[in-house]
Design a protein around this nucleic acid. Structure first.
Lengths: 119, 119
DNA sequence: TCCTTGTTTCGACGTATGTCTATATTGACA
DNA sequence: TGTCAATATAGACATACGTCGAAACAAGGA
């Protein structure tokens, strides 16, 4: 991560197009595909998709890890998947005291949806 | 698959919701997640995403395998990925003479998009 | 300070996946 | 029928991935 000065905010390409252009607009470049595939891949696991849906549908738009249970895998595995979703830019996390809360990144998710809807 | 009589058409859940309910409506069940994740997973590979985008953006909404080149992998690998996209319900294929044409399944793709947009 | 609870990291293991080359299949056309 | 071009399948291989139990880390309370 570069030490960006707050005095010179730079709009990075990722910020403008968190996902990709509409998939039916033109063939994706290799780079675009690489970046977008990372996001789709994150939702491409049943457990992760359940976790994501669980957070997205939880009241307040966020869920504590402690709210999550009964997805059928061990707690370390839950943590591992949450990390993956975070790395993909779909979730953010924040520690508040003892608990860690996850919430969805609406703009990124919406961009993924747009890429498909237009397609 | 049950031998459904054409006289008694049954609307199967899959037909109604090719993908899944909006991800923020309620936590997905294990079955829903399993089915939906299969679709997202199909788009979770850079090469497959490029292939999909290539077909989706091609004129007439369809592309011959012969139109596909320069995705950086061998011809058998292209064929393998197209098969995966087909198995996921995102593409259909039809042989016309020597060539095989692939086209996107709009309803399925739109349903995936909706699941995200509402989310 | 020590304990307890919540969460993440580590290391290992089996399976799934993407890729290739070689081969088979399909259809058009001499 | 035989040959050629387009596509698919088979088999092999390396790597990625999901999972677990054990251990580490973080934060609050006795």
């Amino acid at each position: 991560m570069s030490n960006a000065s707050p005095l010179l905010p730079v709009l990075e390409p990722e910020a403008v197009a968190p996902c990709c252009p509409p998939l039916n607009e033109r063939p994706l470049t290799a780079d675009e595909a690489e970046r977008a595939a990372r996001m789709f891949k994150a939702l491409g696991d049943p457990v992760r998709l359940r976790l994501f849906s669980l957070v997205a549908s939880h009241e307040g738009g966020e869920a504590c890890v402690c709210d999550i249970s009964d997805v059928g895998v061990s707690q370390p595995t839950v943590s591992h998947h949450l990390k993956k979703l975070k790395e993909a830019g779909l979730l953010t996390s924040e520690r508040r005291g003892t608990w860690v809360y996850y919430r969805v990144e609406p703009s990124v998710v919406a961009a993924m949806g747009q890429a498909l809807i237009s397609g």
